[in-house]
Design a protein around this nucleic acid. Structure first.
Length: 325
DNA sequence: AGCACA
């Protein structure tokens, strides 16, 4: 049961003494006998800020680091959920999806461990006393996709009803020198409140600084999202990729911006045919091609519409005809 | 599913 004793364990700072009460109906203040802190996260193979391309692999259960939240009141605001969840260790992003009259929440954490502990803490939490809404939480079936401030549900093409939340995160870990000479405050809770984008929790980078506009270190064009694609009948790996499933309005320069930033890129050719536009990309070696084949599978870019591109190995490598020579 | 360039 969730009660006073199961509040997030960084409760020493809750609520920050200088701050007003939070707008969400918060649970009672932590009891003195709150559970001990969870162990530090094990080294995760998830890069903390990079959401995985869902096409990369099958998710096994122990890789789920997203929780599903039911029982939200109908008038829940994305921001409400965010302001509650942002205090949880490992919180990265959340989203409210309204299907019918029942809003569903999803929250992504940096590790499965953090997701589990958030799930347990939120279980049966009274979210709104008046609306009598009590949360029910489970591990999600799949991870919330989250990259560079974009939250997208990977199993849905319909984004119309989706509210999005995600700070303007950058993809790079950062460790700025501390402006304080006193011992650094705990990672969570003491640095600002309410008017600041949530910071991704990175146990290895000290603690987040107050939100200062940070230029993206490397403005590599990134797909806005990934969508699962079926890639049957691929060809043997080679140094040239065939890109299909490009929409009609595909913009060659946008494509080029994406692919030319990939390691090992050599050249690209767009082929406009009556029915479909396709594209060939040559890389230095098979390895570079393979990485792109995996990493950008299903990538969605603005000019491609809502569908993801399908990446296959080319039947014929660049510079070699099918009929020999 | 649509695979060119030489």
């Amino acid at each position: 049961m969730a009660g006073a004793g199961t509040y997030p364990y960084h409760h020493q700072q809750w609520p920050p003494s200088t701050a007003p009460q939070p707008p969400v109906h918060s649970p009672a203040p932590p009891a003195p006998g709150a559970p001990p802190p969870a162990p530090p996260p094990s080294l995760s193979h998830h890069p903390p800020f990079l959401a995985d391309n869902p096409n990369n692999r099958q998710l096994s259960n122990d890789e789920i680091r997203t929780i599903f939240i039911a029982g939200l009141p109908e008038d829940v605001k994305e921001r409400e959920l965010q302001n509650l969840l942002r205090w949880f260790p490992g919180y990265e992003a959340s989203q409210v999806t309204v299907k019918g009259e029942h809003p569903m929440g999803f929250a992504l954490f940096s590790t499965p461990h953090y997701a589990v502990s958030a799930r347990d803490t939120l279980q049966d939490l009274v979210f709104d006393v008046d609306a009598k809404s009590v949360l029910h939480t489970e591990m999600a079936k799949k991870n919330l996709f989250f990259k560079r401030g974009i939250v997208a549900d990977t199993n849905s093409y319909d984004q119309s009803k989706r509210l999005r939340t995600g700070g303007d995160y950058t993809n790079s870990g950062y460790s700025s020198p501390s402006p304080f000479h006193a011992p650094p405050p705990p990672v969570w809770g003491s640095h600002g409140y309410m008017n600041q984008a949530p910071q991704p929790y990175d146990p290895y980078s000290g603690y987040p600084m107050a939100a200062v506009p940070m230029p993206a270190p490397t403005p590599i064009p990134a797909p806005s999202s990934y969508v699962p694609v079926q890639n049957t009948k691929d060809n043997p790996p080679c140094n040239t990729l065939f890109i299909g499933n490009l929409g009609e309005n595909i913009n060659e320069e946008e494509l080029r911006g994406l692919f030319s930033a990939q390691p090992g890129f050599k050249q690209m050719k767009v082929l406009r045919q009556e029915r479909h536009t396709v594209c060939f990309i040559e890389f230095e070696d098979v390895n570079s091609a393979t990485n792109v084949h995996r990493n950008l599978q299903g990538a969605v870019i603005p000019s491609s519409g809502p569908v993801g591109m399908r990446i296959q190995y080319s039947k014929n490598p660049f510079g070699r005809r099918k009929d020999g020579s």
